[in-house]
Design a protein around this nucleic acid. Structure first.
Ligand SMILES: NC(=O)c1ccc[n+]([C@@H]2O[C@H](COP(=O)([O-])OP(=O)(O)OC[C@H]3O[C@@H](n4cnc5c(N)ncnc54)[C@H](O)[C@@H]3O)[C@@H](O)[C@H]2O)c1
Ligand SMILES: NC(=O)c1ccc[n+]([C@@H]2O[C@H](COP(=O)([O-])OP(=O)(O)OC[C@H]3O[C@@H](n4cnc5c(N)ncnc54)[C@H](O)[C@@H]3O)[C@@H](O)[C@H]2O)c1
Lengths: 217, 217
DNA sequence: AATCAATAAGGAAATTTTTCTTTAATAAAA
DNA sequence: TTTTATTAAAGAAAAATTTCCTTATTGATT
């Protein structure tokens, strides 16, 4: 089911999923002073097919040199621009519990273009605290602050049963995209972008492969 | 590139990815006392096509009743068994920092069949502490404990630059599967199962959709 | 009792994604 | 200078996944 118009959707999602890893690899090479990198090298690092790498990179403006590869600096620059990591977007996080705190502590998000401006909770014990310089407010203050700061993304890290309630609030307050870390699926209007990140799916994949191995013995 | 034999791999990975959400939904319905659920209902909750749901469930032993749907209890029982959530597997976590602590606090992992037996770190400040009843040991003690407890999975939540070092240790100590939360890709022997969980990929997908919207305006 | 509507299920078709093949370029080696 | 080997790029083919279509079943409605 298509949640949004496909007119400009040219880049496959699997490609976008791989790109941050290409970027991270290239950043590492840049730090080490390597100037060029071939699709073979990237593919080796990623454990995928080299043509997959060239296909993926062909969606960007990056062009490689035969017999040499791609300019590392170009990959870093183009890819971070392409992925939207070079402009900072503002977000609010709701649910400053275990996972929420981890995300607030993560400087990686900053590096990848996301600034968490404020956190919200309902637990009086956490409200008023600062987690890695981000203040935790009561959820009722969300509205006023969303106006002030230019916040386009809402991050949901509350218990699953409260996910829909929080999502409804976010929509009402004009959030454009929601990053949902709960296993619950939320219902929002079609024009709101939702990204579900269910860690437990990864667990299912691991178990599936483990059991497969067992069956083969 | 195939990292493992495909002989018994019949279930598509996207299917396995969706199944934990079906399960979570069914568990919710069970709590509410609902006895049957149709593919239409599940699809509506998931925001996907109903035939996708029937296809997915057809990989299991679950059979539905025409005009009625699937038995909720059967979905819960069969799916949790099928996904490997009903037998407890033991894991070690290396890197008891922000993300590591969040995972240690997460009772969801227990519910989905994963028991973190111990955590490891190199920071003297955290070693000896207990996080949600799980003790943090120095990484050097990994070996002895891995023998004692029946640990098959290693969870990596150290900084990206240390991921390979930790992975090498895990392999040396006989771990069968690695759940890697760092953006770095690790190199391990072919028989070791690796699941990379890169949260930043999700960010890239959101940004991509956001920018698409902008282009369409 | 007959009709209607909702649904599962299986197979076909369409779409998406990955892999393979060919070609051309070019750095390095002979 | 010539040859060789490596690589990017573009297109074709293959594989995987999703969506569509048809059929049969059966609970609800008339
Ligand atoms: N902790 C993890 O590592 C982890 C891993 C995977 C998934 N998750 C998911 O992330 C979500 C949060 O998990 P957690 O471990 O951080 O839980 P947690 O209990 O530590 O934190 C939840 C926080 O949300 C707050 N909260 C509850 N209802 C709220 C509301 N209506 N508005 C605002 N704040 C509210 C609570 O006060 C609490 O601080 C859960 O859905 C969980 O399944 C967590
Ligand atoms: N925090 C998040 O929300 C988040 C989100 C996405 C990805 N990540 C990734 O997860 C990883 C960890 O992030 P974090 O925020 O928890 O970092 P952190 O600095 O809070 O924690 C890292 C921990 O690993 C320990 N450590 C370092 N080297 C070690 C070694 N060789 N052996 C054992 N322990 C070692 C450190 O002492 C520290 O306690 C990073 O790769 C990060 O990119 C984190």
């Amino acid at each position: 089911m298509v949640q949004y118009s496909k007119k400009f959707q040219a880049v496959p999602e699997p490609t976008i999923r791989r790109m941050p890893s290409y970027l991270a690899f290239a950043e590492g090479l840049l730090r080490k002073g390597q100037q060029f990198v071939s699709s073979t090298q990237i593919a080796n690092y990623m454990n995928i097919d080299p043509t997959q790498v060239t296909k993926d990179l062909s969606y960007t403006t990056i062009v490689g040199k035969t017999r040499v590869g791609y300019e590392v600096k170009a990959i870093v620059d183009v890819l971070s621009e392409f992925l939207g990591f070079s402009v900072m977007d503002n977000a609010f996080l709701v649910g400053a519990g275990s996972l929420g705190s981890a995300l607030l502590h993560d400087s990686g998000l900053n590096h990848f273009g996301l600034k968490i401006e404020a956190a919200f909770d309902i637990n009086p014990a956490t409200i008023g605290r600062k987690i890695n310089d981000v203040e935790v407010f009561h959820i009722d203050q969300f509205r006023d602050l969303a106006q002030e700061l230019n916040v386009i993304m809402g991050i949901i890290t509350v218990p699953a049963e409260n996910a829909q309630t929080v999502a409804d609030l976010m929509v009402a307050w004009g959030i454009k995209a929601i990053w949902n870390f709960t296993p619950a699926r939320i219902k929002v209007p079609d024009d709101i972008i939702v990204q579900n990140t269910t860690l437990y799916s990864n667990l299912a994949i691991i178990f599936n492969k483990l059991h497969q191995e067992k069956r083969e013995e």
